[in-house]
Amino acid sequence: MWRVALRDLQWRRRRFVIAVLATSLVFGMTLLMTGFSTSLHNEGRRIVAALGADAWLVAAGAPGPFTTSTPIPAGDADRVAGMPGVIRADPLVILHSTIRQPAVRDVNVIGARLGGLGTPPLASGRVVARTGEVVADTELGLRLGDRVELSGRQLQVVGLADQVTWFFGTPTLFLALQDAQAVAFDGQPLAMAILTQGVPRTAAPNLEVLSNQQARADLERPLVRGAQSIDFISALLWLVAAGIIGSIVYLSALERLREFAVLKATGASNRSLLVGLALQAVILSATAAVLAAGIARLLAPMFPFTVEVPPLAFPRLVVVAMLVGLAASAAGLQRAVSVQPALAFGGP
């Protein structure tokens, strides 16, 4: 009976194509939403990893290095460096600001001690060697040698780093500690956190030790509602896709009631009819899922920040889409099963 189902798909190909297109757009959106969500998590993971710390020390009671409003003396880094378990300790300044040259852009700013922890891996150029220099995120579109203006300070781009964004793709500038302190604290020797190589084995007075995981959680916390909204929209999109598949299969079942009755009357089993109808739902879902992968790849670069659709999301979408297609077509399947073969004896 699967042949009958395939022939029926061919027969109603126009409707099938429309349904596939509509469903693939919805599936494509779910893939992009998955990409948004993944990007948010990856940004946090990447930036924390890029700074190369084993532990983060912030003011006692502060939520974390990225959201704290309680600075600590930068000189505490020297005290921390002497603590058991710590190999090296450097102060770090983290803030949000805007650059005005070459265009107005929001940026994250990280100020680190020259040659110390807090320097990202570079895509090109060199690390900051003196004040007045900056390593810029490639997202900003700057080139080596370009100049940027940050809070009235002219900085020269000496290095470029890839994928060091956070807060929905906001690019990052890496400066000398003094430059960052000048922007954030009017030159006072303060820091938001102290990064350590090695983990302190004893408690530091007035300081709290955070792991990389905790530092990442601090960065992601303000984004939780946004991420939840994305997940919610994603779930709604799955429902829309299920609705499209379900209604197409149900309508198909309704139109084919007489056909099912005839097939039953000529000896077709309920199971074979179910398999045929389920096959249609699976083919529709799987085709839409494959097309959705292309749509997502096509649309992703058009978004203002990197949309990272994990490679596993594509095969997962196909599998989940087929399951959703089957579940959504339950009403149609039920309708087909309940058809009485006596209906075949009816007139036109």
Binding site: V4, R7, D8, Q10, W11, R12, R258, E259, V262, L263, A265, A344, F345, G346, G347, P348
Partner: peptide
């Protein structure tokens, strides 16, 4: 069957 009742897609 009355009205033939053939499957139109086949």
């Amino acid at each position: 069957f009355q009205a033939f009742n053939l499957v139109p897609s086949l």
